[in-house]
Write a protein that binds this DNA or RNA. Structure first.
Lengths: 140, 140
DNA sequence: TGCCATAGGGATAAATTTATCCCATTAAGG
DNA sequence: CCTTAATGGGATAAATTTATCCCTATGGCA
């Protein structure tokens, strides 16, 4: 496992929170779990753009940070289910707010993000969370 | 300037928001500006842990993303003031919530973050935002 | 037997972000 | 003349995160 070489900045709440959510898929993973997508294979299917490896790593970090709990069923083939811990649950308002803000400002954000010279292309359909929500009728 | 090689994931609001806040100091910078710390040199003093270079880069990205506006006074030595745009302002509830969540759970988070094998050390006093708030009597 | 699904993780390469260092401009002050 | 204060940014190194590829284990199914 990677060992950090420079000290982490944790002196304001912002940085602590940022550290917990630091990872390309972490907020999305938390959101998925909060919507009852519990098994690793399900989560993986929800994010076709993510590698199995990365999801495993980020799940492990979220678990290590106490945001989610892992329940392993003694079966073969193995079955694992994740759930939010209490503190993980308390993050959801923030994650939902982030999601809503992004959606509410989508057209503007897409344009400025594409304008920014740093970004060349963007990809869609790597995150199936909306499809999932519609299938499970959590949104209409 | 760096040119992205892989497409950016922007299909859910979460990723859009994450992109805007993506940068070690961006949320802190936005918060500083929202608290009337407008000039680059002031912001720099507020975050002793940050390099001038990085702050410049992140300020430029925030500006490019339309979150802040830059006003350059035609003086010498130069004077610059940043302010939040309307959309940048609309991000503040999220940033404040992140800050509050981190502070509210500080002791827990510090322990789990230090436990995580990935992190070796942590540093304090690289972010002077609380000091600033006390000096300006916004908190007591 | 060969292949699929499930879950986990090592080793290494590639991409991305941050850090370091250095240069430029102009006015004021010692 | 030298230093400081302000602001901005290039070039390059270092750190960190993500992607690729591969290996393990077991039971069921054609």
């Amino acid at each position: 496992m990677y060992e950090r070489k420079t000290p982490l900045t944790i002196d304001c709440g912002l940085h602590l929170t940022k550290e917990v959510l630091n990872g390309k898929w972490k907020p999305a993973i938390l959101r998925a779990i909060s919507m009852d997508v519990k098994r690793p294979s399900e989560i993986l299917r929800l994010f076709p753009g993510a590698t199995r490896r990365v999801l495993n790593v980020q799940l492990k970090e979220l678990e290590g940070h106490g945001m989610i709990e892992k329940k392993t069923y003694p079966q073969l083939p193995p079955k694992v289910e994740y759930s939010l811990t209490e503190i993980g649950c308390s993050l959801m308002p923030i994650i939902d707010a982030m999601n809503q803000w992004g959606d509410a400002n989508r057209s503007f954000l897409e344009s400025v993000i594409k304008q920014a010279p740093k970004i060349s292309e963007t990809s869609k359909s790597t995150c199936q969370i909306y499809r999932h929500m519609m299938v499970t009728r959590k949104i209409g």
